[in-house]
């Protein structure tokens, strides 16, 4: 079972990064051309928009899909792709300075992602180290289960709670008895 705590420090950071992802993703999607122009990488406009979709997906995953760890790792992978794209785009780029600023911003975000991933894994390790309570003696019955099976088969259950006879699943035995 994957362990996570929806009110822990790691989870709060993951949620913050989730909102950041959605904000960045929407900006990349809606203003992909302006961002590409600012970085001197007009030929990458569609790629930046695709990255925006990736960011929004990661954001929804972090905010809404339970265990945030896989989504944080997807963000780290996405950061690596972003940095590779920016590094490649700096060659012969008159606006390489802007691309370097963007590269630095991605590095800062990556650092936060790595801190978040570490925190989440530490929290999971802590929960896994706690002893699992033993409820194996909590049957609720006074006698072994085998002795209790069918003990209430005479319970008053109204006809409206019964399956109508015509719809009732017929066990194989009664089928053969009928035929």
């Amino acid at each position: 079972m994957a362990y996570y705590d929806r009110s822990s420090a790691g989870d709060n950071l993951a949620r913050g990064l989730g909102w950041f992802s959605i904000g960045l993703g929407v900006a990349e999607l809606m203003a992909g051309r302006s961002i590409a122009r600012w970085m001197g990488m007009e030929d990458k406009t569609n790629l930046i928009r695709a990255y925006g979709v990736r960011e929004i997906t990661a954001g929804v995953g972090l905010l809404a899909l339970g265990d945030p760890k896989p989504w944080i790792w997807s963000r780290i992978a996405g950061d690596a792709v972003d940095m590779a794209t920016l590094a490649a785009g700096m060659k012969d780029n008159p606006r390489a300075g802007n691309a370097r600023i963007a590269f630095g911003a991605v590095m800062a975000a990556t650092a936060l992602d790595v801190v978040c991933a570490q925190k989440l894994h530490q929290e999971e390790a802590y929960y896994r180290s706690l002893p699992v309570p033993d409820y194996s003696d909590r049957s609720g019955f006074p006698r072994p289960v085998s002795a209790m099976r069918g003990a209430a088969s005479d319970a008053p259950v109204g006809e409206d709670m019964r399956t109508p006879k015509i719809l009732r699943f017929q066990p194989a035995q009664s089928q053969s008895a009928n035929s």
Partner: peptide, 22 residues
């Protein structure tokens, strides 16, 4: 108690599954 031949319980939390088994 109502007499099912076989009861199968589905979950993912170890202690809840242990209580179900009990």
């Amino acid at each position: 108690l109502l007499g099912a031949r076989q009861v199968i319980a589905i979950d993912r939390v170890p202690e809840r599954l242990a209580m179900a088994k009990a």
